[in-house]
């Protein structure tokens, strides 16, 4: 609204007293919660500052606010925002960030449907974690189990959303099992691991995964092997770790290892293998990504 448009100078005392009032609410609620109650925040008087302080305290605590005989969950939209952020992180294979955002969302959510959506997202996080960090086809590991076991107990979510995620979990798990037998799918999975390592800022891990992809598809590469030029420096970085074979010179290997760049090797590998396999390796890798459920009618907004 910004009526007077001028510069708003923060008033230290007013801020201090307001924040003190908010902390007073938080401390009293924290106290009673520590004793086992699950208290609702009641504004002490109708004064706007008091109501504002109570609302902010309730939001920060993730609790409920009592405004003239109605219990309001002030942080419900925050819960929805955090849930979306968590799901988007999952779609980008970022399990740590997803778990952190979903933990916050779980703290804020009070509407039953929202709570169940957060729990479903936490089960999906477990699935994505197993899918990504367990070698394909490992015995006794069932990535889709947490989701499929949870779905029958989510009674407040729409049917099609549950079916969608059931199909999605089965698809990912099937793909993951298939990858242990099919070289193309395995390369796609390994490429996903490469992209995650690069995003997390671990070039050596990315190089290692790229070398594994190279080793796996070596037989299919044409004789003149365009990747050779990029693979040798990558191998040099790891050969330096091993005792030197005869005829290898330390200094020369070290110079070679300087220009080992995971990014170039990634681009080259994708280009070459896509040509060899006849399909775009990036798309194969993207098939391991979690597809998020979109509301069928774009206009009906979720309760934000």
């Amino acid at each position: 609204m910004g009526q007077d448009g001028g510069e708003h100078l923060v008033d230290p005392e007013a801020t201090g007293s307001f924040v003190a009032r908010v902390n007073r609410y938080r401390e009293s609620v924290g106290h009673r919660r520590f004793a086992g109650e699950d208290p609702v925040v009641y504004p002490e008087s109708k004064a706007p500052a008091e109501v504002a302080a109570a609302a902010i305290a309730a939001e920060r605590l993730g609790g409920l606010l009592r405004l003239d005989s109605q219990a309001i969950s002030p942080a419900e939209d925050l819960a929805a925002a955090e849930l979306d952020a968590g799901l988007r992180a999952l779609a980008n294979w970022d399990v740590r960030l997803a778990r952190w955002r979903l933990a916050i969302a779980a703290g804020y959510a009070h509407l039953a449907e929202q709570q169940q959506r957060v729990s479903l997202a936490r089960a999906l996080a477990q699935t994505v974690r197993d899918l990504l960090y367990e070698p394909p086809g490992r015995p006794r590991v069932k990535p889709e189990a947490p989701v499929l076991m949870l779905l029958p107990a989510l009674d407040r979510l729409p049917r099609e959303e549950l079916d969608f995620y059931a199909e999605e979990a089965k698809r990912l798990a099937e793909l993951w099992r298939e990858a242990s037998r099919d070289d193309l799918l395995w390369s796609g999975w390994a490429l996903a691991r490469t992209r995650v390592s690069l995003r997390d800022g671990e070039p050596d891990a990315a190089l290692a995964w790229l070398l594994r992809i190279y080793r796996r598809n070596r037989a299919r590469l044409p004789a003149d092997d365009p990747l050779e030029r990029l693979v040798r420096p990558a191998e040099a970085t790891f050969r330096l770790l091993l005792p030197l074979a005869d005829g290898e010179d330390e200094a020369e290997l070290r110079k070679l290892a300087e220009d080992a760049s995971p990014h170039d090797l990634l681009v080259a590998t994708v280009a070459t293998l896509s040509q060899v396999w006849g399909t775009d390796l990036l798309q194969v890798s993207d098939r391991f990504a979690l597809v998020l459920y979109q509301q069928p009618e774009p206009d009906r907004e979720r309760p934000t």
């Binding site: 699950d38 779980a106 949870l150």
Partner: peptide, 21 residues
Amino acid sequence: TRHAGQPLYSLFRYAPNRLFA
């Protein structure tokens, strides 16, 4: 590693107030 049944997310917050008290 092995889930025995449907996972109980947020057991303490989602338990009914009277049962938790």
